[in-house]
């Protein structure tokens, strides 16, 4: 837990982290701003049958096939991804991927001191994908560890097994 907290290393000179905030099912999540390439209106997503369960499908991003991930399923949040309004295009493991979000609020600077490891109360599969929790004026924000949350196909298969053990 503290190990994943210490992974927050990229910060600007003032010891702050620039984070893009977005909302899914009423929860505010944040990812480092360098990870975000763009935010687009959510087009029709083509489902890919038989792909990993948290893969919502693929979209056409200017001629490239972009996989779209569903955090709801990854974090077992429930809810319908079709409600999502936007897709955040992110760089994960040097490749591009999209995440469906209900709304994008803003970019904020979070002083490192305000970031804490996930409280022990949080359990379940999402714990390992969380880098930390930040206290903002508007409430709490969950900082995501994208590289852990979404892995290339062959790695993810092994991890799926781990999920089942945990659950």
């Amino acid at each position: 837990m503290s190990a994943s907290g210490s992974e927050v290393t990229r910060m600007d000179d003032d010891g702050e982290l620039q984070v893009v905030l977005f909302e899914i099912e009423g929860v505010t999540y944040g990812v480092e701003v360098e990870r975000v390439l763009e935010i687009i209106r959510r087009p029709e997503v083509s489902r890919v049958p038989a792909a990993l369960d948290y893969v919502e499908g693929v979209i056409n991003l200017r001629g490239n096939v972009l996989p779209v991930f569903d955090l709801r399923r990854r974090f077992r949040l429930g809810g319908d991804p079709a409600r999502a309004s936007h897709i955040v295009v992110l760089r994960v493991h040097d490749a591009l991927a999209g995440v469906s979000v209900d709304g994008v609020s803003q970019v904020v600077r979070i002083p490192i001191g305000r970031i804490e490891p996930p409280p022990p109360g949080i359990a379940g599969p999402q714990l390992r994908y969380i880098e930390g929790i930040a206290k903002l004026e508007a409430g709490l924000c969950v900082l995501l560890d994208l590289d852990r949350a979404f892995q290339p196909a062959e790695l993810a298969l092994g991890e799926g097994g781990g999920d089942r053990d945990a659950g």
């Binding site: 890919v48 979209i59 001629g63 096939v65 996989p67 994960v92 591009l96 979404f150 892995q151 196909a153």
Partner: peptide, 27 residues
Amino acid sequence: LKSFGDFLGAVPGFTGATILGNGELAL
């Protein structure tokens, strides 16, 4: 023919995806 990329890898049942004239994707 375009591959699904590293994330999805080889999806059983498909060789990849393609983009149609109207921008829609087809598997």
